[in-house]
Design a protein around this nucleic acid. Structure first.
Lengths: 200, 200
DNA sequence: TGCAACCGAATGAACGTTCGATTGATGAAT
DNA sequence: ATTCATCAATCGAACGTTCATTCGGTTGCA
C-alpha cells in the first residue's frame, strides 16, 4: 500500500508542509523527525534520503518560505502606481502574507531567533524578515528624494520592524486586523519616512 | 569545598546568570540543566530545589529580565523634559538596554517566539518586548493631542517594532550604532507618530 | 535534634541518525 | 518480447546519545 500515491516531489512537498505545520504548534524542538514522518506519511529513511540531516531540512524549509514571501510582496504593483502607492502596497502585502501564512511567521520568528540562524547567517545574507528587493525599493525612494536622505537600513528597520510587530500584535490580540488600522499604520511609517525638505 | 561561598540568593542569581549566558550562545535547547549546573557552580539537585522544572527556571528568568528592562527604560527622565524629550529618551533607553544586555535580547527573542510563550501568555500579559508603562506613556501623548488620534497599540507597534528591528540590525551588522543613526531613527518614529492637525 | 539546603550518580524517556532490506522503473542483452 | 542487471527510491527497526528529572544521602545552621 501507499505505492505510488506520491512521486518524489510530492513527498518532498509533504515533508516541508508537515514540518512547517508541526513547528508552528510544537516549536522547533518539539518537532521530532518521527512526527514529521508520521504527519507527512513519508518514512524517516526517505526523509533522510532527501535531507542529510534535520538541520538541512530546516534550512531547505527556510529557503522555500523565503521564496514564497519574495514572490508575494511585490505582486500586484501596477504601472501607474506612484512611489507612494507602491510603498503602501508592498507594506500591506508584507503584513497580509504573514497573516495569511501564520505558520511561516511562526517559523521565521523561531528561525531568526535561533542560534541556528546566527551560525548560518553568512549563507543567508538577507535582512530581518525581508529581502534585498525591499532594500532596493527603499533606496530608490531615497535616490528620488522622496524619502529622507538617510542610510537605507534605517528605513528598512522602520518599514520591516513595524510590519513585524504589527503582525505580532495581531497574532497576540493586542490589535485587530482592519483596513483602518492598516491605513493608519502605513500612514505612520510614511509620515516618518518621507523627506520633508523637498517632496512632491 | 565550596561550602558557604554563596548563600541561597547568590546561588539563585548565579543560576539565572548562567542560564542567560548559555542561552545566548547555545540557544534554548542547547542549554541542558547539566551545563547550567556546571557553569553556575551549583549542583543540579540544588537547582531543582529552587526551580521545580526547567520550564519554571526559564519563566523565572523571563520575569527577572523583564523587571530589569522596566527599571531601565524610564530611568533618567527629568522633570523639565517635554513630552517629546521623554519620547526620545525612553526610546533611546530601550535600544541601549538591549545593546548593553545582548544576552537579554537573545533570550527575549527566543522566549517570545517559542511556543512556550504562547502557552503562558495569559500569565504574562504584556506586549511584545515592552511593558504596560510604554502603553500608558503613549496613551498620554494621544490624550494630550501630541500624538496621532489612533488606537494606542498602533503607536506601540511602531515605537517598539522599530526599536527591536534596530537592535536586530545592529546585532547582525546591517547597521552601526551611532548617535546620528539613533537620532534619525527616533526622528522617523516621531515624525510618523505626531499629530499634524494640532501640535505644539 | 530537626530541618532546610545541598549534592550528583542513576534512571528512563525521547530523539537524531544509521543501515540492511525491499521495491520498482529503466534499458541493455537475448 | 522476455529476461535480467542496476540503481535510485523507499522503508522502519534498532542504536547510541543526550537530557530532564529523581532520590537517597550528606551537611551545617538554629
Amino acid at each position: 500500500m501507499n505505492v505510488r500515491l506520491m512521486n518524489s516531489n510530492e513527498k518532498i512537498a509533504a515533508v516541508l508542509a508537515s514540518t512547517l505545520k508541526l513547528i508552528q504548534t510544537n516549536g522547533f524542538h518539539g518537532t521530532p523527525m518521527s512526527k514529521i514522518a508520521q504527519e507527512s506519511d513519508v518514512a524517516i529513511g526517505t526523509i533522510y534520503h532527501y535531507f542529510p540531516s534535520k538541520d538541512d531540512l530546516i534550512f531547505a524549509l527556510f529557503k522555500h518560505c523565503r521564496a514564497l514571501l519574495n514572490d508575494y510582496i511585490f505582486d500586484g504593483i501596477k504601472d501607474d502606481f506612484s512611489y507612494k502607492d507602491s510603498f503602501y502596497h508592498v507594506w500591506r502585502n508584507f503584513v497580509k502574507f504573514y497573516l495569511e501564512n501564520g505558520h511561516v511567521f511562526s517559523f521565521f520568528e523561531q528561525f531568526f531567533s535561533s542560534p541556528y540562524y546566527e551560525k548560518n547567517k553568512a549563507e543567508i545574507q538577507e535582512p530581518v524578515g525581508g529581502q534585498n528587493k525591499v532594500v532596493d525599493f527603499l533606496q530608490e525612494g531615497i535616490d528620488r528624494k522622496i524619502l529622507k536622505q538617510v542610510n537605507v537600513h534605517l528605513l528598512v528597520a522602520s518599514y520591516i520592524g513595524v510590519a513585524l510587530s504589527t503582525v505580532h500584535s495581531i497574532k497576540f490580540k493586542d490589535l485587530s486586523f482592519s483596513e483602518q488600522n492598516m491605513e493608519e499604520l502605513i500612514g505612520i511609517i510614511w509620515d516618518g519616512a518621507i523627506n520633508r525638505e523637498k517632496n512632491n
